[in-house]
Amino acid sequence: MTWLALTSLLLLCLAIGYGFARLGNSQSSEETLIERINDCLPQTQCAQCHFPGCRPYAEAIADGRAGINQCPPGGDATIHALSELLGVEALPLDKQFGVSKPPLVALIDEAVCIGCTLCIPPCPVDAIVGSGKLMHTVIAEDCTGCELCIAPCPVDCISLVPATAEITQWRPAAPEQRS
């Protein structure tokens, strides 16, 4: 049995290696590959992939240090895009990294905020404005919903709310597939 497992592992490695080799030929530099991988990532910058942001994760994928199924915000769409780009098998999202959620944004309860500024440094996209002892607020358009500001808040006044109103999210449904 062991040899079977080993062989299949070897084959998988070869397949992945082939995928990279093909890319390596068509794309001259490592840098371009990282860019193209990064293009497939949702840029939420939430670090759920166990890397400190999307680009570090892209670097890890390019180096073969990480699988393509570790990004919960990207979900199946990202996995699909990466599998097409890299020519590797599209595995389902690895649940240990988290689950896909609808788009959210952070909302500070401005009545509760004590203005401690602790939420500002963790925000990867500078979406929080505020100053010492003053009320803080989230610029909703810039917030990616990465949740990194939630834990540092000493008074738990930051929560996540749906990114857009139901009405903005609505889009025409596909017809019932009766044929």
């Binding site: 990064n38 840029q43 910058q45 999307c54 680009r55 990867p124 996209v125 810039d142």
Partner: peptide
């Protein structure tokens, strides 16, 4: 829309970094 959002977040995170 998703792509535009991602591009914005990417620029801002690069600037932040």
């Amino acid at each position: 829309q998703n792509e535009a959002d991602a591009a914005l977040a990417r620029t801002r995170s690069e600037q932040h970094a």
